[in-house]
Write a protein that binds this DNA or RNA. Sequence first.
DNA 1: GCAATGACGCTCT
DNA 2: CAGAGCGCCATTG
Length: 107
Amino acid sequence: MAPTDAYARIYAVVRRIPRGRVATYGQVAEAAGLPGRARQVGYALHALAGGTAVPWHRVVNAAGRVSARAMPGDELRQQQLLEREGVGFEGGRISLPRFGWRRRGAR
DNA sequence: GCAATGACGCTCT
DNA sequence: CAGAGCGCCATTG
């Protein structure tokens, strides 16, 4: 019952995502120290419940798309937030190679 | 403790 | 390039 530890780790990673960029669940999971547990990252964000200072809207799936949530319309809001930060959507999809978060100095 | 679900990812068609 | 199916792991009931 103390998954909060892993959750806090995920939140910390999401928090370090620079504005105008998006990270995939798998990437966040790996950065959080949970390789292969991308699904749990989604769980953690779902448990977020709003009110938390975590830019969860910067987290998208590997398809570069916003994952379907329980509340329809909320994903629309996430897309709008990303566009507002400078992320460009292509056909409703984000160009991960272009806006994908790159915590490596590579570029 | 067992079974089902889930903000996902990858491979094949 | 796009769409569909299968797999992996943790959380919840």
